[in-house]
C-alpha cells in the first residue's frame, strides 16, 4: 500500500532521515515510535508528499509517486486523511466549519448531510457542543481532537495521525484509541499513527516501527517488540528515550 524505499532527507546541514525503509500493508494499523526530534513527522510528511526526499522513492499502491506534480498529488490525497501534530485547524473558521471543510470541498452533500456527518465526527472525539468555538478558544487537547475529527470527516481509506493522543488525559486517549480501532474494524482502513504513548501503541497497533537517529531500528508486531533485545527499544519500553549512546 505505502512504501518508503531508502529515504534520505536533510534540512540544511542537519541529516534527519538516513535511509528509511518502510512498508505499510493495506488494512493494517501501523504505529511509528521514536524519540522526540528523530524525524517521525518528517517521515509521515513524505508519505503524503508534503516533503520530497533528497534520495529514495515513495510508492503508493505500487505507483512511484516521488516525482508527482502537485496536481497529481491533489488527486491521490482525496483518499487520505491526516491529522497534524499541532492540529493545524484553520484559524479563520470555527470548529464546525473546520470539520465541514473537506466535505464541502469534495462532495456535493446537502447542508443537512454535512451537519449530520460533522455532528457524528465531533461526537466521536467528545467535542459535541463546541461547534461554534474558534480554534483560538480551544485548549491544546481540544484542538488536537478537532483536527482528528476533521481528518476522518471524509471517511478516507488511509489515515495518517501525528500524535493524536499526546497531551490528552487517559480517558480521552482511550476514547481516541477506540475510535481508531472502530474505524479500522468497520471499513477497510489503513492507519499510520505516530505516538509516544506505549499504551496507545499496544492498543491500536498491528505492527510498529521504531525510528532512531533517522533509521528504522525495529519493525515487528506488538509481540515482537516485547521480546526485542535491542537496547534502545528496551529503554523506550521502560519509558526512557535512549540518549546515552549519543553522548
Amino acid at each position: 500500500m505505502i512504501e518508503l524505499k531508502n529515504i534520505y532527507k536533510s534540512f540544511g546541514s542537519k541529516q534527519v532521515l538516513n535511509g528509511v525503509n518502510l512498508h505499510v500493508v493495506k488494512g493494517e494499523s501501523f504505529v511509528i515510535l521514536g524519540g522526540s526530534g528523530t524525524g517521525k513527522s518528517v517521515m509521515l510528511k513524505h508519505i503524503i508528499g508534503l516533503l520530497k526526499p533528497d534520495k529514495g522513492r515513495v510508492f503508493i499502491d505500487g505507483r512511484d509517486v516521488t516525482d508527482f506534480t502537485r496536481q497529481e498529488w491533489f488527486k491521490i490525497r482525496r483518499r487520505f486523511g491526516m491529522s497534524f501534530q499541532e492540529a493545524a485547524l484553520f484559524d479563520f473558521m470555527n470548529v464546525y466549519e473546520n470539520v465541514a471543510f473537506p466535505i464541502r470541498r469534495h462532495t456535493r452533500s446537502t447542508e443537512e448531510e454535512i451537519k449530520k456527518r460533522v455532528g457524528y465526527c465531533l461526537d466521536l472525539v467528545g467535542l459535541s457542543g463546541n461547534e461554534k468555538l474558534m480554534p483560538s478558544e480551544l485548549s491544546g487537547g481540544m484542538r488536537r481532537r478537532a483536527g482528528f475529527a476533521r481528518s476522518i470527516a471524509l471517511n478516507p481509506e488511509v489515515l495518517l495521525f501525528d500524535e493524536p493522543t499526546t497531551g490528552l488525559d487517559p480517558v480521552m486517549t482511550d476514547q481516541i484509541d477506540n475510535v481508531i480501532n472502530d474505524l479500522r474494524r468497520g471499513l477497510d482502513v489503513t492507519c499510520v499513527t505516530i505516538t509516544h504513548d506505549m499504551i496507545s501503541a499496544f492498543d491500536i497497533a498491528d505492527r510498529m516501527v521504531m525510528l532512531y537517529e533517522g533509521e528504522i531500528v525495529f519493525t515487528g508486531t506488538t509481540d515482537d517488540i516485547l521480546k526485542s533485545r535491542v537496547p534502545i527499544i528496551r529503554s523506550f519500553l521502560k519509558g526512557r528515550i535512549c540518549e546515552e549512546k549519543t553522548q
Partner: peptide, 12 residues
C-alpha cells in the same frame, strides 16, 4: 502553523 499543509493534504 501547518494550515497550508493541511489544505494541501485535503487536496485543496
Amino acid at each position: 502553523t501547518e494550515q497550508v499543509d493541511a489544505l494541501e493534504v485535503m487536496g485543496v
